[in-house]
Write a protein that binds this DNA or RNA. Structure first.
Length: 457
RNA sequence: GGCGACGUAGCCAAGUGGUCUAAGGCGGAGGUCUGCAAAACCUCUAUUCGUCGGUUCGAAUCCGACCGUCGCCUCCA
């Protein structure tokens, strides 16, 4: 299996260093509802995880919550709640959203507020080694000490300064130096430290947590492309300076960003669709199919038509899984060539668009073979199995509420009687009226089936 | 200004030197089935890959220029 590594800029054969694959994925800063851009990112890493496990690897997945930060403090003050309460609320929401999207939970979700002692240890060590220095209650990382600084972003320190948007910063020796520890302002959450009360800077928490939960070398570190610089660049600098071991990360994986209209979807720009809004309109599977229909490293635009079209596409895959009736009279359909193609696609840096194309090919083959009377049970099992690798179940997620089901079935029964007596006008009226209420009827050789149409407009 | 990515059918999106007269999905057209529908199935729907040059026996795929879009350089998945 090959994975594209941002650091080297090439696809390389992947194998974990030890018995388990060590995966760290950057989590969220919980101060606002989860949006579909997060969903896309975590879905990409969900598929990575499912595929690695499918390939027989054991895996340990750590994902942080940055639950102390300027934006959290600001949001908490403006809403008149304490920062831990605000963070807790959004963390809970985030986990619920991930569950709703069928994204597997990480094995560990460390939080900055619970890791401060370890973060302080790391900062202290960096100061002792000369990689960091103290200035007015802040502690900064000395970027100039790291000759490779900029290697992940493929930039040099000089070229970054030429960009000119660097703020000098009071106590900084070098404009690109970044804070490991920030002195507390009045009323802010703070912890004691050798440099006075304060809180961790933005990047150090990931270094400390990754080191503590996974060790000095990670097999895979993931996140959105917007984290490459400065966040991940700084993680490399901190961790390698601290451990003295190289490389900190063997494979850097970054997903392309979701756009809304012409711009990246982001909290700061305010152009976003929350996961809850999306799930109110579309099924989780349609959203998943939409995201996976594009390669994880490519940017993708979120559009209603796009997700809606996947809702219809999904119906085709589900239809291919409807049970076969009658006993097969022809040779069974052999799904192995499809399986091979699926694996080849996934082995090539998780080429989910191609893998999905294989699933549609297999679905078509199943439908065709079934009409010809061939045994499709094995092929259907393969479709189900490969779908599950992508996190799909293809089950008719019918919000079949107990209240109306018996009545709908009664109406269908009566319509059946009408049809038997060739009272088609009345029968069609029933079907039309149910249709306008969002209930779709289909007359099949096995009888009439119904399903609820998802409102999509 | 610096660094990087991308531009493939009506829409979305794979493919990155010959198997490509380019996968798959949505949409569209015709047909089979059906009381009529729906679903399913079959057939068709880019001789062409932003534009212009170049390299090569051969390019959507490599190189150059140009046009356009986006990302990072500041918080961000």
């Amino acid at each position: 299996m090959k994975l594209y590594d941002t650091l080297t800029g090439e696809k390389r054969e992947f194998a974990p260093l030890g018995v388990e694959v060590k995966v760290y994925v950057c989590g969220i800063t919980p101060y606002a509802p989860t949006h579909v851009g997060h969903a896309m990112s975590y879905m990409a890493f969900d598929v990575l995880r499912r595929y690695l496990e499918f390939r027989g690897y054991r895996l340990r997945h750590v994902q942080n919550f940055t639950d102390v930060d300027d934006k959290i403090i600001r949001a908490a003050t403006s809403q008149g709640v304490a920062t831990p309460q605000l963070a807790d609320r959004y963390i809970e929401e985030f986990l619920e959203d991930m569950d709703a999207l069928n994204i597997l939970r990480a094995h560990v979700y460390p939080r900055v507020t619970q890791e401060v002692p370890r973060i302080l240890e790391m900062i202290q060590a960096l100061v002792e080694k000369g990689y960091a220095y103290h200035a007015n209650g802040d502690v900064y990382f000395r970027v100039g000490r790291v000759s490779r600084y900029g290697e992940l972003a493929h930039r040099t320190l000089d070229s970054m300064i030429a960009g000119a948007r660097v703020e000098p910063g009071e106590g900084k020796e070098h404009p690109m130096d970044f804070a490991l520890w920030k002195a507390a302002k009045a009323g802010e959450p703070a912890w004691g430290s050798p440099w006075g009360d304060g809180r961790p800077g933005w990047h150090i928490e990931c270094s400390a947590m990754a080191y503590h939960y996974l060790g000095p070398t990670l097999d895979i570190h993931g996140g959105g492309q917007d984290l490459i610089f400065p966040h991940h660049e700084n993680e490399i600098a901190q961790t390698e300076a601290f451990t003295g071991a190289r490389p900190f990360v063997r494979f850097w994986l970054h997903n392309g960003l979701l756009r809304l209209g012409e711009e990246k979807m982001s909290k700061s720009l305010g152009n976003l669709v929350t996961v809850r809004e999306a799930l109110a309109r579309y099924s989780a599977e349609a959203l998943r199919l939409y995201f996976l229909s594009s390669h994880y490293r490519s940017p993708l635009s979120y559009t209603d038509e796009g997700v809606a079209s996947q809702e219809r596409a999904l119906e085709r895959l589900r239809a291919a899984l409807t049970p076969q009736d009658g006993s097969p009279s022809a040779a069974a359909l052999d799904p192995d060539p499809y399986r091979q193609r699926f694996l080849a696609a996934m082995d090539d840096d998780l080429n989910t668009p191609q893998a999905i194309a294989v699933l549609f090919d297999l679905a078509r083959a199943i439908n065709r073979s079934r009409e010809e009377g061939a045994d499709v049970h094995r092929a259907q099992n393969t479709l189900r199995e490969l779908g599950a690798v992508l996190g799909h179940s293809f089950t008719v997620a019918q919000p079949r509420d107990v209240d109306s089901s018996p009545f709908i079935e009664l109406l269908i029964e009566i319509r059946g009687e009408l049809r038997r007596h060739k009272q088609y006008e009345l029968a069609d009226r029933l079907r039309d009226r149910l249709g306008s209420l969002g209930i779709v009827l289909e007359d099949t050789p096995r009888g009439t089936i119904w399903k609820r149409e998802r409102a999509a407009s």
